[in-house]
Each structure stands twice: as structure tokens, then as C-alpha cells.
Amino acid sequence: MNFVIVLVALLGSVWLLAVVEGWTTTGRLRPAAPLLSGLAHLGRESIVPRTPDRVFFETAPVLLLIVAVLGAAVLPLAPTLVIADLATGALFINAALAYVLVALIMAGWGPNGAYAMIGGWRFLGQLIAYAMLIVMPITAVAMRAESLVTTVIVGSQDGLWNIVYQPLGFVLFFIAAMALAFRAPFDLPTAPGELGGGVDAEYTGVRLGVLRLARLTLVITLASATTVFYLGGWHGPLLPPWAWSLIKTLAVAVSMLLAGRYLPRIREADLMRWCWTLGIPLALLNIIVVGLLVLVVP
């Protein structure tokens, strides 16, 4: 039952995010647009490039979607509303998200096209830079909760959310999450102005529809992870727990969307330099500060 509810919540959030995305792009609020766009993708010709790596080409969009849903499986909407309350939930989400890279490399290599391939390799380079900024802030979150169980992590924030307890970790995780979801200004693998769509460039029809659905689902999963790790998960007054989780998740997802709208795409070299020389030392500092707080403050 939990599986169905979480899946419906995930789809509903994706739909809302797509509506907001359309609103910011066209200036018109059209609730039916995502559905119509999806149907249009189903009806369009799905072109296969010449001499593709067929397995990679076909698998990549589906793999990205599976990865996004797997990540969401360990993120609770309410104390009992989680698909899998694993003892290693925080670790599992890291493992699941690692496959985003695999999916994008496959989407880049599969079509046998230059733009897609550069996009895929770019994401690999990017990952080396920000992967630590996903893992290290989660480590600090788990230190405070003294557990990797995501429901326990939310429980540890009763009274004081991690965004206040470890604001540095929140900033680093939020930025790295945007990069992992390849949202602007970190959209280097797709970069319409540089690569004509990059890893998306050779996909059409239903395959492109799945790829877009997967991208939006990934954004929601990462926004949900931010909510669980830093924004107190389901905690909040008056409304039921699941409602707070959804509201916070959507707020984070929309802020990811808007942040990219008002910033130019970051240079690849700058992203890597800043991650290595600034991000990782700051993430280490965050772990030390949280460690001291855990020891000093009961």
C-alpha cells in the first residue's frame, strides 16, 4: 500500500513541478500541459540514430527513471509512510544516485552522436567534483541522528531542523543535489546553448518522454532527500505529516527550478575547481563542527 501511495505522491509532485516549470518558461499556468505533452511524446515518431549502441540507447532513460524511484523508496513522507525503512537508508540513497552517472554515460554513448557523448563525459567529470558533496553532508546528518535510518534522521530533527543545526551542510547538499539533477546552472550534460541538448539531443518521441519524466522525478527525489535530511521531514504544525513532507519537497524543487532561471550556466572548470578547493574543505569543516556539537550539546 505504501508503495502505491508514495508512487502517486511522486507522480503528483512531478506533475506540479512540470506545471510550475511551464509557468516560469511561458508565463502561462496550464495544468493540463504536462499531460498533453506526455501524450504528444507518445504520438510522435521515435527516431533511432544511425548505428547506435542499442542496449545503452534504450536502457538509459528507463534506468534513470528507476534510479529516481529507487532513491525515493527510502525517503519517508510520514513516520510510517515509507516504501522501505532500511537500516542503511541514507547509504542506500547514495548508492542509488550513483547510477544517475551510469544512466547518463549510457545516454551519451548509446546514440553514437557527438553532442550526446560530450554531454555524458561532462557529467562524469562533474560527478568527480560534486559526489563528495553529496556523501559528506549526509555523513554529518547521520552523525547527529546516530543512525542511517531515514525515519530516525527525521526524528532527530524534532525541535531543531538540520538546516539550522548544520546550515553549511544544507548549502553544500542543496548545490550538489542541483548538480546531480543536472538542473541549471549545472546543466552541463544537456546545455542547450552549447550541446543542443547533449544527452537529450538524440532522443525523440516516447524515449524523450521517459527521459523528461525521469529528470523531473530525479529532481523530486533530491528535493525529498533535502527535506528529509535538513528540513525536518514531516515535522510541522496543524497539517498531517505527509502534507508537510510534500509541501517542503515541492518548495525545494521549485527553488531548484528558479535558482537556475536567474543564473548563467557555470563553467565546467570553475565547477570542478570550486568543488575541490572550496566545497570539500567546507564539507570536512561541517563534519568537524557537527561532531563537536554532537559531543558538546546533549
Binding site: T24, A184, D187, G193, E194, G260, R261, L263, P264, R265
Partner: peptide, 10 residues
């Protein structure tokens, strides 16, 4: 330039 840089607002 905004289109090239992915800077939608511009």
C-alpha cells in the same frame, strides 16, 4: 547570449 549561457531570465 542568455540562450547560449542557459540564462533564461536574461
Amino acid at each position: 547570449t542568455g540562450r547560449q549561457l542557459g540564462f533564461a531570465w536574461l
